[in-house]
Design a protein around this nucleic acid. Sequence first.
DNA 1: TTAATTCGGTTTCAAAATGCAACTCTATTC
DNA 2: GAATAGAGTTGCATTTTGAAACCGAATTAA
Lengths: 152, 152
Amino acid sequence: MSRKRFLDTECPVARALDQVGDWWSLRIVLQAMYGTRRFVDFQQQLGIAKNILCDRLSRLVEHDVLRKEDVGEHGSRYEYRLTEKGRDLFTVVVALRQWGDKWIPTEFPPLDLRDRENGAPIQAVRVLAGDGRALDVRDVFTQVDERQNTGS
Amino acid sequence: MSRKRFLDTECPVARALDQVGDWWSLRIVLQAMYGTRRFVDFQQQLGIAKNILCDRLSRLVEHDVLRKEDVGEHGSRYEYRLTEKGRDLFTVVVALRQWGDKWIPTEFPPLDLRDRENGAPIQAVRVLAGDGRALDVRDVFTQVDERQNTGS
DNA sequence: TTAATTCGGTTTCAAAATGCAACTCTATTC
DNA sequence: GAATAGAGTTGCATTTTGAAACCGAATTAA
């Protein structure tokens, strides 16, 4: 059987993971956020096999996370660039990064992100209530109404 | 060759993805956040094969994202519960959920999360500067200092 | 008090997915 | 004019995944 996909589920997390939840996609998006645009650069920086990279890039383009642009006069040179949808994964990536820094420390010092405006460190990403209180998983519930709570 | 892992990289995102970046782990964590604790329930709610579930649960326990608790008198009934590290993935999950709701809409209405305190919807998760401005991927840079920027 | 069922797995086996190396086909550079 | 680089394919071996069968302990049903 083929790998399970989660295209039409009611659960938005599952739908999101369906598009970027495989082993490589988010890493590719991350590299793109660092400015990588060329096939070879993705390949070298990530150490990913070319056929897999090819497949992932196509999938990301298909899902409108990346856009493939033809640079160079008559074909054969391309750039993969983030779309708005792709750029909007920034929050997810930063949340993951902060989680990694907090819970999987290494010998390396945490490479913190800084505000380009003034060089100051950014805040920790948090889930906030309407009134600005920081919320924990136990402080929220899902509006499930009459439908039964399958997934999501 | 076996699947590439990213255990000791300088990049915290890669380290995070190494622990929860496979096809199932974040889904399991999500279910756990919805209150699922038993093997069979994970299995049925996710539609995951038992051997894979078994493997993923062990990995998550090994990485201290879940804790395996022995309930029932002398073994043979267990519960998998989120640790603090696991609960702290809440931000990541909510960010993903909001991204999914925004960019991959379906016939289902977005199932919004609400504040248990007062039933009000929560805010969109955002990356904020020290002074509270919302930041985009282009508004930040990484403190890379003298080391070369490999990965991260 | 057996018998059936549930829980939490392990085993087996076929079908993907992955990684690697070699190869291709344009351009561009030496 | 030959060599190299970019962006992929193709073929093949290894891993991972998924489905279904099986298993042993404990719990429930008859």
